[in-house]
Every structure is written in C-alpha cells, then in structure tokens.
Design a protein around this nucleic acid. Sequence first.
RNA 1: GGCGCGGUAGCCAAGUGGUAAGGCCAAGGUCUGCAAAACCUUUAUUCGUCGGUUCGAUUCCGACCCGCGCCUCCA
Length: 466
Amino acid sequence: MSLRLYNTLTLQVQPFAPDRDNTVRMYTCGPTVYDYAHIGNFRTFVFYDILRRWLQASGFGLNHVMNITDVDDKIIRNATAQGKSISDYSAIYTKAYFEDSALLRLQKPEHVTPATEHIPEMAAAIRKLGELGYTYEGEGSTYFRISKFPEYGKLSHINFSGNRAGARVDVDEYEKDDARDFVLWKAAKENEPYWDTVVGRGRPGWHIECSVMAIEYLGDTLDLHAGGVDLIFPHHENEIAQSESLTHHPFARFWVHSEFLLVDGQKMSKSLGNFHTLRDILDKGFSPESVRYLLASVPYRKALNFTFDGLKSAATAIDRMRNFALRLATEPFDEGQDAALDERAVQATAAFRESMDDDLNTAEALAATFEYVRDVNIAMDRGAFRTGNRERAQEVLNLFDSVFDVLSTGADSNSLADDKIDALIEERKQAKKSRNFSRADEIRALLADAGVILEDTKDGVRWKRK
RNA sequence: GGCGCGGUAGCCAAGUGGUAAGGCCAAGGUCUGCAAAACCUUUAUUCGUCGGUUCGAUUCCGACCCGCGCCUCCA
C-alpha cells in the first residue's frame, strides 16, 4: 500500500499522490511572529515535518511553502508598546522561531514567505476580486462577500443556512454587511503601519496572505494544505472562498489538520500557568530531541496531552534506541550472516512503512521499530547476530531516524575530545587490571562530569555522550 | 444551542467482529569488581456505563455519563 491521508474536505482517508510530475505542492500555515512559539504551535510544526519527511520517503519531490505572518493586530500592539517598528519587532521572533525549529530538527520548507514581502500581490488579488464582484468596501476597508460564494462551508462542513442574522457584528473592529464576511484589506488607522496600494492605504487581513502566496509559488491548485484544526474555520474556509473565487479552480486537493495539544489535560493558557515555550522546557533540562519525540509519537489526528512525565518517558525511549544503535555500531559480532535476522529486518521495514502510510500512524511505526530492536537485542545476546546482518539492521534504524530524527545527540562535543576520552579509558583499563577500582571509578565519574558515559561490556569498554 | 473528537493497564498509547501492539514506570531475576546496557518473569479475563444486533463486540447500533475542541483571534 502507499500513502493514505485523512482529508478534511471529504472526511475520509484517501490515497495521496501529487497531481503531476511527482512533486507535492504543499502549503502550511506558519507562525505569527508576535512572541516565542509555544509547545502547542510546535506540535503542529513537528507534524508538518513528519509529513514532509514521509512524503520524501514515499519518493515524492517537495515544493513546500510556509508563510510567516509578520503583520497582525498583536504584532502591531506589542511593537507599539515597545516603541519598535513592526519589522524590527517581528524580526526578533522570526529569528527565534527558526532557532527553535533547528533545535527540533524541522526541515526548512522550500519557500518561507513573510506576508509583508507580498503586500502588492495581495492588493492586486483583492482588486481582482473586486472586479469579479466578490467584494465591497466600507470606511476604506474591503470585505469579501460570502453570499457570492455558495460553497462556503464545504471544508468545515458547517451549514450556514438560517444563520444569516443580518446583524452587523463587530469582529475585526470594522463594520460588515454579514457576520460571515471577512476583511480582505483593513483601512489605515491612526498610528498604525500601512501600505499604499491599488486598494488604498492600509494593511492586509489575515486570510489573504495564504491564498496569494500559495498561488504565487505553487499555482492555482495545491496538492496539500495543512494547518492546525483550529484553522479549519474560519481561516481555511476563507482561503478557499478567496482563492477559488480568484482562480475558479479547486484551491487544494487535500486538507490535513493536526489536533490540539493539551497540557495536563487542559487547554494551554497563560492564566492556568501551563503555558510552555520550547525555551522554557529546555531550561528545565529536557533535550530538544525528547520534545520532538513526544510531539511526533502521538498520531497527528489525536489530541496530545503534554506532561513533563511524558517528556521523561520520551527521553528514556530515545536512550533505548540510541543504546541499540551504539551496540550495533560497536559490538564485534561473529563473521557470517543469519538469513532469518535479515528477513526480520525486511519485515520491520515493511511494518514501519505500512504504519506511516496509514495516515502517518507514528505510534504504530514506533512499535514496529521497538519490537525489532528487542528481537535483535535478543539475537545479539545469544550470539546469533553476525557482521553480515549489520547492514540491514542499520537500514531499519536509518528509516526510523529519517522520520523521527532523534538518534544523533545535540552534539556539544566541545567538552572533551575523543582522543582524551580514549586515553582516560585506557588508563582506567590499566587501573582495573591492577584492581585499583577506586581510580577506575574516579575516571568514570570524571568522564561522567564531562557528559561521557562508559559501559563495560564483555568485548571491552564503549562510551557515549549524554 | 449547533458541529465535531475522544474515553483501552500507574502514565502515554496502537488496534481489530474472533478473544488486548509498543514505550515509560514498578517488583523480582540473569549478567556484573562496581555501574551501565541487554534479556527474562510479573503487571488490563479486560477496553467509560447500560442495553441491542451477532455463534461471538473492546471493535457495529442506541441511550446515558465524563472530558475536550470549534462555532470570536488562535497551531
């Protein structure tokens, strides 16, 4: 079987493949850079990364666009409060976002597109929508008239009949004809940043940036559009309305959405005191790999309950996997090749692939990997594992790590050079030989302080960095 | 009120109309100068509750209870 994904548009799991030339045209809703991204944001961003990696593992090329929302009410408010320009302000958090992303080993999309670098294109699109009769103006702002788009609600599966109200609902602090209508262009207000464009002086509404940048970089129809479930309505519904009114083509073939992250069973909020940024978590001594593993281990369509116990558990699980990788790399196995063990590796690979193909079932893929690790550990213990089995075993690990990417350590190998470590291990070996165990333990402790852990095995000493 | 999701061992969590993956934690054991690592054994006769369909349901249907999300900015 090949990759199947749950499509919010159809409410079904469907076979996924790009529409043409084997390249997936995908768009994901990126961060709004008004503050440090929190762990909930990263749940979704890690999901994008897992999706990217599995699309690549499935043999597809990738053309992935992610926006950076660098102009919005919160950015303006915070920048103003600090006496900064919005670009100076948002630059701080854009930079922080990419630092955090690198720590979490998130692959960078082929195109990262800041909204403020595409204002003229947005204005042009809004003007075109106006020419096509989809918009109206009020007090210098431009709105999208939902009543002109009969399919509105097809993504969120909301039936809007009888829900018209006609009341003027003040949502974006501007007046609208219909509660569902949304703002495409906001008229400049006192003391707010603005752009002079073909649709007047002001700034873009939120939704238009995604439509315009997606179409500019990827064409009228995307293969895949992703985001968090909270964006289904109204954001993605609005994107569809704008885009399809503009191009008269389906905007995206697949819509995939990641579920929410809860903290200690509750929605994360600053008032509950359960609001965590990645930085906060790392400051408590957890590794970025642990965070990545935890966020990736729960399938994306299930709500993920984040706890620090869960993080500890993730760290231990990673250790188990790393210990296995170390053993595979360093233990001197007997010559030969065990056919059954190679077969076991092939089977593990197939199980892993089948799980990931099944709507990215990471929990099951993990189980397939751990079962394999246990079986091979057993084989190693009883001497059945041979040098000739290394290659296939390594392939299993490589496949696992091509998705989860947690095996390599954070690499602060500046602490102690390898040859220094080897020298100390040699000294300890001599100490042990002369039964000077206190010196041997001293060396172990010394290395431990430097983040190096020694393991005595029947085949000699091996070491790893913590 | 409308729409949707979920309730599986101490915790996280997969899964199926045929009798419960995996990870973490805990206890005991093998190995070991010590410490690790690894392995073994033990830990849900049971899958929110109550009914129904069925030879058989955790898996299908209904009702109920509980938790959560969206409907307004939000990953």
